[in-house]
C-alpha cells in the first residue's frame, strides 16, 4: 500500500492501481468516458485529466492511465483542470450531439451548446467497444481503423464481421448509445456493424433468446460443469 495525496488529503491505495480508480473508490468524482474498471485503461477521451505536481511546473495528465506510487500528489478540481475539461468537452459534444449522457455531462462541465459544426454520428472513438470485444468477449471482431481525424471504429473492411457472436457487450458499454441492437423474429442485428445472427429458441416456450454463435462459444469454452440446460431454456423458463 502507498499513500497518495488527492486535493491535499491523504489516501491509502494499492501501488500501481490507476489514480482514477483510487479516486472513485474514495468517492472523489472525476468525469470519464473511455475508462471501465474491467478493461485496460486507454487515455483517449482526455476528460479525466488531473493536475500533477511536477519538479518544475505542474502538468495535466489522464488519471485513468496514471499508476499510483508513494507520495503521488494530484489535484482534481483546479481552475486549470476545469478549463481543460470544459474545452475537451467542447470537442466531444459535436461528435455525439444526440447522446443524452454526453449532453448532461457537457452541461455539468460548463458546455451548454454545440460550438463547432457537428458532423458526429455518435461515436466519440473512446474504444470501449473495441476493448470489451477483445478483452471481455474474446472475439476481437472490431477495431480502430485509419488514423487522425479519419479514425473510426469498424469491423474489418467495414463488412459484416464473421467473428462477431452478437453478444451485445459493445451495445451495453457504449457511452453514447451509438451502437444499436435489434431483434426481430429469430434474428438479432447489431446495426452499426451490419451483423445479423440467427437465434436459438427456447425448447420450452419457443422464444428466440440467444444468438447461435454465442451458444457455440459458450459450449466450447465451458469445461466443467457442462452448460447443459442453461443453453436450452430462455432465462424466463430456467
Amino acid at each position: 500500500m502507498v499513500t497518495v495525496i488527492i486535493n491535499g488529503k491523504k489516501y491509502q491505495a494499492e501501488e500501481g492501481r490507476k489514480l482514477l480508480q483510487v479516486a472513485l473508490d474514495n468517492g472523489i468524482e472525476i468525469p470519464h468516458l473511455c475508462y471501465h474498471e474491467n478493461l485496460s485503461s486507454y487515455g483517449g477521451c482526455r476528460l479525466c485529466l488531473v493536475e500533477l505536481a511536477g519538479r518544475k511546473k505542474s502538468s495535466l495528465v489522464t488519471s485513468c492511465t496514471l499508476p499510483v506510487s508513494e507520495g503521488l500528489e494530484v489535484k482534481t478540481d483546479t481552475p486549470q483542470v476545469k478549463k481543460a475539461r470544459r474545452l475537451v468537452m467542447e470537442m466531444i459534444l459535436p461528435q455525439a450531439p444526440d447522446s443524452l449522457r454526453i449532453r448532461v455531462l457537457a452541461r455539468e462541465l460548463g458546455v451548454s451548446a454545440v460550438s463547432f459544426p457537428s458532423e458526429g454520428d455518435g461515436c466519440i472513438r473512446c474504444g470501449l467497444c473495441v476493448r470489451a470485444c477483445e478483452e471481455l468477449v474474446g472475439a476481437g471482431a472490431i477495431s480502430f481503423a485509419s488514423r487522425g481525424s479519419a479514425r473510426t471504429v469498424e469491423p474489418p473492411f467495414a463488412e459484416e464481421p464473421e467473428s462477431c457472436i452478437g453478444c451485445g457487450t459493445c451495445v451495453v458499454i457504449c457511452p453514447t448509445d451509438c451502437i444499436k441492437m435489434e431483434e426481430r423474429d429469430d434474428e438479432r442485428k447489431i446495426i452499426r456493424w451490419k451483423r445479423t445472427l440467427k437465434m436459438k429458441s427456447c425448447v420450452r416456450c419457443g422464444r428466440p433468446f440467444l444468438p447461435l454463435a454465442m451458444v457455440d462459444v459458450i459450449t466450447r469454452r465451458s469445461t466443467s460443469p457442462p452448460p447443459g440446460e442453461r443453453l436450452e431454456l430462455c432465462p424466463d423458463c430456467r
Binding site: R46, R125, F144, G148, S149, A150
Partner: peptide, 14 residues
C-alpha cells in the same frame, strides 16, 4: 497533423 495524428486523444484528433 490532422492526418498524421494517431487519432487517439480527443484533443489532438479533434
Amino acid at each position: 497533423l490532422k492526418s498524421e495524428s494517431c487519432g487517439k486523444c480527443t484533443s489532438c484528433r479533434e
